[in-house]
C-alpha cells in the first residue's frame, strides 16, 4: 500500500455524507502527479474511494462502473449503497488468493437519505461504521484526527470543515500522501466538490 501512497476518508453527518482523498500519485519516493483523484462517482448519491496500488484502483473503478451500468440496464434503478458494498466485497473475495491491492471506502446516501459508509480490506471484509472510515498509507494518523474531531449529526458545512481539517492534518504526517485534497459533500439535493489547498512538500 506504500508503493503509490494516498489517503481516503469518508465521514457521516446528518442527512449528508462526505468523502475525501489526497491528490498525490507517486512511485515510491518520486512524485508523479499532484492532481490524482482517488474518489469515483458511482451515481449521484454513491461514491467510492480507493487507496492502494494505482493500477488496481483504476481497474477496480472501471469494473465497478461496468457492473453498475449493467445493474441499471437490468433493474432501471440505481444501486443501494448496501447492495453496492456487497458487490464490491464479492468482487474482492473472488480473488482471495490473488487479490487486487486496493482498499475501498464506500460512502453514500440510502433511499431515505440516511448516510451509509463502509470500509473494506483488500479481500472484501466489510467494516461498516456509523462515524468515519479511513484508508491508505497514513491510516494511523487519520484514525487519530478523525477520532477526536468527528461528532454526531453534523450539517453539511460543519462536516466539510471537520473532514477538511482531518484530511489535511492527517496527511501532513505522511510523506507519501498530501499535495492538497479533494472533498465531495453528498446531500439529498446535490454534490459539492471542493479542492483544498495543502502543503506542496
Amino acid at each position: 500500500m506504500s508503493y503509490n501512497g494516498g489517503a481516503v476518508i469518508a465521514m457521516t453527518g446528518k442527512e449528508c455524507v462526505a468523502i475525501a482523498c489526497d491528490l498525490r500519485l507517486g512511485i515510491q519516493n518520486q512524485t508523479i502527479a499532484t492532481d490524482y483523484r482517488k474518489v469515483f462517482r458511482v451515481h449521484d448519491k454513491l461514491f467510492v474511494g480507493l487507496s492502494g496500488l494505482a493500477t488496481d484502483m483504476q481497474t477496480l473503478s472501471q469494473r465497478f462502473a461496468f457492473r453498475h451500468n449493467l445493474y441499471k440496464l437490468r433493474e432501471e434503478r440505481n444501486m443501494k449503497p448496501t447492495t453496492f458494498a456487497n458487490l464490491v466485497s464479492h468482487m474482492l473475495y473472488e480473488r482471495r488468493f490473488g487479490p487486487y491491492y486496493a482498499e475501498p471506502v464506500i460512502a453514500g446516501l440510502d433511499e431515505n437519505n440516511q448516510p451509509y459508509i463502509t470500509g473494506m480490506d483488500l479481500i472484501g471484509a466489510m467494516a461498516p461504521a456509523s462515524d468515519f472510515v479511513v484508508a491508505g498509507s497514513s491510516s494511523e494518523s487519520l484514525f487519530g484526527v478523525c477520532e477526536s474531531f468527528w461528532k454526531p449529526d453534523m450539517d453539511a458545512e460543519t462536516l466539510f470543515e471537520t473532514l477538511g481539517q482531518c484530511i489535511l492534518t492527517g496527511v501532513n504526517r505522511d510523506c507519501l500522501a498530501g499535495w492538497g485534497a479533494a472533498i465531495y459533500i453528498i446531500t439529498p439535493t446535490g454534490i459539492t466538490a471542493k479542492t483544498l489547498k495543502g502543503r506542496q512538500d
Partner: peptide, 23 residues
C-alpha cells in the same frame, strides 16, 4: 467528547463546484 468545532472558512478552499447530477 471535546466537541471541537471549526469556524466556517477554516479550511483553505481553492475551487468549489456543484457537480451536475446525472440521474
Amino acid at each position: 467528547s471535546q466537541s471541537f468545532s471549526f469556524a466556517k472558512g477554516t479550511t483553505p478552499v481553492l475551487r468549489s463546484t456543484m457537480l451536475t447530477l446525472k440521474d
